[in-house]
Amino acid sequence: MLDDRARMEAAKKEKVEQILAEFQLQEEDLKKVMRRMQKEMDRGLRLETHEEASVKMLPTYVRSTPEGSEVGDFLSLDLGGTNFRVMLVKVGEGEEGQWSVKTKHQMYSIPEDAMTGTAEMLFDYISECISDFLDKHQMKHKKLPLGFTFSFPVRHEDIDKGILLNWTKGFKASGAEGNNVVGLLRDAIKRRGDFEMDVVAMVNDTVATMISCYYEDHQCEVGMIVGTGCNACYMEEMQNVELVEGDEGRMCVNTEWGAFGDSGELDEFLLEYDRLVDESSANPGQQLYEKLIGGKYMGELVRLVLLRLVDENLLFHGEASEQLRTRGAFETRFVSQVESDTGDRKQIYNILSTLGLRPSTTDCDIVRRACESVSTRAAHMCSAGLAGVINRMRESRSEDVMRITVGVDGSVYKLHPSFKERFHASVRRLTPSCEITFIESEEGSGRGAALVSAVACKKACMLGQ
């Protein structure tokens, strides 16, 4: 009897593995994704193909990295998701002549009506938060230079001027797309009239992360975010950046690689679950690469896999709870928690219980395998993109072996128990001629924006502006 049951459990697990095998990517698959990513990057950089390229390769006008001589107080704003952060950054000489960066910050959550109302409502709310922060720190009387981390696709015309191309991540505030974001912020500050600010720089969160990590390690020339969304930036040779005049030196390019796949480059790798996630998203047909990796989508992918296993009578005796059938019910943090389970399955059992399920031991094991399959594919897909960037940098610099540091931020990278190990191992397999160091950014977005502002202020002083 026991043997029969054991055989049935083994057969069930084997069927589960057959279904989950769809998520496995072979090294040849990853090399294919990497080569296609490089081709799209090239198209994004070139003037004649930029418009139709899915990977936009947006110039950021960040050319210099901090040298350690900029000092002063800077205000930093960070808008990239449902939370908005205001930070005071003091850049100065530390002990023994070292450079020191001290920060104080406060988080504000953005109400739904500000995210989806008008641009005026959104930026009025942001300036209200700045006003509140300055009151708390008794700094209303000071006109501070301000660095703005704005983590949406922007076409820069200068370091302090950028046109919002399109909202992502659930934002829909009308009247912002096609307009200068810094102008919208300046107008809102003017409307309030109770404080003055000098907006000197606007950067993407990947750029802010790279600059913040450069402060720790001067070989950091790539910034990457794996959180709600997924994106990367890197220092490109100016001669390859056709959208900006000049051939000397390097400029940081914001790849906006989340949109890779929007022209069909990933079609052969998309599964039924991916198509369902895409169809029910706020932007169907867009940001397809990001939807395979980002935390906004990972939990939902797992939920759809679990429903398939229920329908195949391989999980929960073929019956799903009402909660499990509800879109968004299986949160991405559950994926991390399930994979963090120590082996007694308590954590998995508790999560499934909150979803109205009474799982068996085998159910718990199957749910864990589903989570591992989805998150491992995410790590491997992400590795193909980064390997594409790094191999490109090595080739354009004609280096036999390139040493490089990548600064990384984002909740999936930082909080998932195995993502970074799987990701690092896969990147290294795909970049055999590179020695890569990964560092995690601390308060990256805010500190990085302030350091970019410090560079901009120093330049302005040198130019006598």
Rank of each mutant, 00 (worst) to 15 (best):
Y413V: 07
G249M: 02
C129D: 04
C233E: 02
Y125L: 07
G328S: 14
S280P: 03
K90S: 08
A119P: 08
V89M: 05
G285Q: 09
R275N: 13
T209P: 02
R43C: 14
V222Y: 01
I163K: 12
R429W: 06
E236C: 03
R377W: 00
S375W: 12
D158K: 09
D205R: 12
D132M: 15
V305L: 11
E279S: 13
T326I: 09
G407T: 02
M298A: 11
G285R: 13
C364Q: 02
F316K: 00
N313Y: 06
V305D: 00
V207L: 09
N204H: 14
T49E: 04
P59C: 00
G294M: 08
L164Y: 11
Y108R: 02
T82P: 14
Y215A: 05
L306K: 02
E265S: 15
R422L: 14
S441T: 05
R325E: 13
C434N: 00
V181H: 11
R5S: 13
P359M: 15
K56F: 03
V389I: 12
T116M: 12
N180Y: 12
N313P: 00
Q98V: 11
R333H: 06
S76T: 05
D4R: 06
L144K: 00
F438M: 03
L2K: 09
R36H: 07
D205G: 01
C434K: 00
R325K: 14
G295T: 08
T437A: 10
D132S: 05
M34L: 06
E177M: 13
C129Q: 01
E435H: 07
A119I: 06
E157I: 11
R369Y: 06
E256Q: 10
T326Q: 14
N179P: 12
L144F: 04
A119E: 12
G227C: 03
M251L: 09
L463N: 08
I366R: 09
E51F: 07
M8S: 14
E268G: 04
E14A: 05
E177H: 03
Y215W: 10
R428Q: 10
Y125P: 02
A208F: 01
G264L: 03
V62Y: 05
L20V: 06
K136V: 11
N283T: 13
E120Y: 15
G92T: 13
I110C: 14
F423M: 08
A53M: 05
A425G: 08
E322M: 02
D274R: 01
G175S: 13
I225K: 12
G285S: 09
S353P: 04
L266I: 01
D274C: 00
N83H: 10
D363E: 06
T431V: 10
L430D: 01
F260E: 00
S396H: 08
R155G: 08
K169S: 13
N391S: 09
A53H: 02
E128I: 15
I163F: 14
M393V: 13
K172L: 14
V71D: 01
K169L: 08
A378G: 12
L463C: 12
Q323F: 07
K458T: 09
L352S: 05
I439D: 05
S64K: 14
C129H: 04
T118V: 07
C129Y: 05
D29E: 03
D278I: 00
S373E: 14
E70N: 15
G147F: 07
S212D: 08
Q219N: 13
V367K: 00
E442A: 10
G448A: 10
V305Q: 02
V374K: 00
R250Q: 09
A460K: 05
E95N: 04
E236W: 04
A450E: 12
T206W: 02
G68C: 07
I126F: 15
D363G: 01
I130K: 00
F84W: 03
R447M: 12
M462H: 13
I439Y: 07
G81F: 04
L45S: 01
N179G: 12
P417N: 08
V335Q: 06
S69Q: 03
W99I: 10
V406T: 01
N83L: 10
G227Q: 00
R369T: 10
C461N: 06
E177N: 10
Q138I: 04
E279A: 08
T255A: 10
D365R: 05
L301T: 07
N350T: 04
G246T: 08
R85N: 15
G264M: 02
S131Q: 03
V89R: 01
Y61A: 05
I404N: 00
K346W: 05
L451P: 06
V406Y: 01
T431M: 08
S69A: 10
D4S: 07
V389N: 00
R43Y: 03
P145R: 06
S131K: 11
E339T: 03
V222G: 01
A387N: 02
V200N: 05
L307G: 08
F152D: 15
V389S: 00
H137M: 10
A208C: 10
V207A: 05
V302R: 02
G294L: 08
L270G: 01
K12C: 14
D187K: 03
S340F: 08
K39T: 12
I390R: 00
L451F: 14
R186K: 11
G81K: 11
I110D: 00
G446A: 15
V412I: 07
H416W: 11
V302M: 02
H105P: 02
P359Q: 03
S433P: 10
L315E: 00
A208D: 14
E96V: 12
P417Q: 07
V374T: 04
E248D: 15
T332K: 03
Y289C: 07
E236F: 04
V182T: 09
E196Q: 07
D217F: 03
A449H: 07
A259P: 09
G147Q: 07
Q106R: 11
D3G: 12
N254M: 14
L45W: 02
F269Q: 12
G72W: 03
M238I: 15
A387Q: 02
E95Y: 14
V55M: 14
Y215I: 06
A176P: 11
D4W: 03
E339W: 02
V33S: 01
V154R: 09
L309Y: 00
S426C: 12
F74Q: 04
R5A: 15
R422F: 11
C434I: 03
A173N: 12
G285N: 05
V389C: 07
G356I: 04
D217M: 01
E40K: 02
K13M: 06
K102D: 09
A379T: 07
K104V: 06
L430P: 01
A454K: 05
L79W: 15
G229V: 05
E120L: 04
K459V: 10
P417C: 08
M41H: 00
G94Q: 13
D409E: 11
M34G: 05
M202G: 06
